[in-house]
Design a protein around this nucleic acid. Structure first.
Lengths: 197, 197
DNA sequence: CGATTCTTTGAAAACAGTCAATCTGTGTGG
DNA sequence: CCACACAGATTGACTGTTTTCAAAGAATCG
């Protein structure tokens, strides 16, 4: 089960087999069933998880019970509430599994240790952090500048693999639209596509 | 002029006077006039600026010429297009001065050097990065979950110092509202306040 | 199969955006 | 010092988009 992470670390970070062994030592496999929580509001996120298999979702809950999807993660993505992971404070969010899945969990202390002792690993994490920053920036720009249709368009172009795996009402809550609006936007969209081709 | 940054680094990062000297060596003072650009779309952001005095704005321009405010910075904040700064790619954004101002500019290579050679400095930057991540997360949640009035409310609570210094139409573009809508929201808001007190 | 979850649709209401006009304060040049 | 231009803020009337509520139609799962 570690092979997925090993492959990833070699490809993306150029880790040596000795370095891989160090990572393997601290990566704890975890199986999780669909609909189970990986993290619940109020918990502290002590781990970061590498997704070997499955699909996960980080979301907040409004006072009327509405769910706001903040982030999704599929194979070869990392998942955690990074806020809580960094700060050690209780999380405002929940993480749940949208499918049966498998993760490799690394404790915060161990994770920091890997960054210290493996420069390649550190570099990789910094690269991911930068990418993440850019993604946030783009998402905010999309939020404040685009119409519902443009947001939808943008989403399916940016995250096609995710789009095909999650229910539409979660796409809607990720984009800040009601599911009904998303449904209608999609209808418009396919109408246009068929006219043009 | 360096004293502002020195004070900041001692208070927030606990730097020693020797470490401060290292920072001073690479920090280049820059004066800038109201309405001048610090960065223009297409430029690469080679520097990060520490704001000694003044107020700055990072914004994108839509195809119809509308401006979308992504970020503001006042005294003791850092300003740059961090995307471009990290990646070395041309920026999609502009930075301009909303008032006459003074900055201390640090070149990317020098900045990375400081992180290498001064653990205190590195730690401070990492703390800021984490805070920034949290701020982005909160802003996205606000974007996708709140009404116009809640967004406005949230903004004046989160950034009171900025609110009182920048034109309202920039607050509007930061929140993803039209200036007219913001104006009406404000009117409602003050009406409520006077009724309740 | 029955239950649950997900998606779509229609109609009405709430909300935000646009356009156009006006009002304010600031600063510049004659 | 005044006049004028300019940037910013507000207001009203209108338009358009999005939400809400209610219902019903798919799809999936045990």
């Amino acid at each position: 089960m570690f092979t997925a992470l090993a492959t990833y670390l070699v490809e993306k970070g150029g880790l040596t087999s000795d370095e891989l062994r160090q990572v393997e030592e601290v990566a704890v496999p975890k199986k999780i069933r669909k609909r189970q929580y990986l993290l619940q509001e109020g918990d502290v996120s002590h781990h970061i998880g590498f997704v070997v298999k499955g699909c996960f979702r980080l979301y907040g809950v409004g006072k009327n019970g509405e769910e706001y999807s903040m982030r999704f993660a599929i194979e070869n993505w990392w998942i955690s509430d990074f806020d809580s992971f960094q700060s050690g404070l209780p999380s405002k969010y929940n993480i749940d599994a949208l499918e049966d899945g498998e993760l490799l969990m690394i404790r915060k202390e161990k994770f920091e240790g890997l960054k210290e002792s493996i420069p390649h690993f550190k570099k990789l994490i910094e690269k991911l952090t930068a990418k993440n920053y850019e993604a946030h920036q783009n998402r905010i720009l999309s939020n404040i500048s685009e119409t519902a249709e443009e947001k939808y368009d943008n989403f399916i172009k940016t995250y096609p693999q995710i789009y095909e795996r999650i229910p539409l009402h979660m796409v809607a809550s990720f984009l800040g639209l009601s599911r009904e609006t998303l449904s209608r936007v999609r209808q418009q969209h396919t109408k246009k596509r068929t006219n043009n081709s």
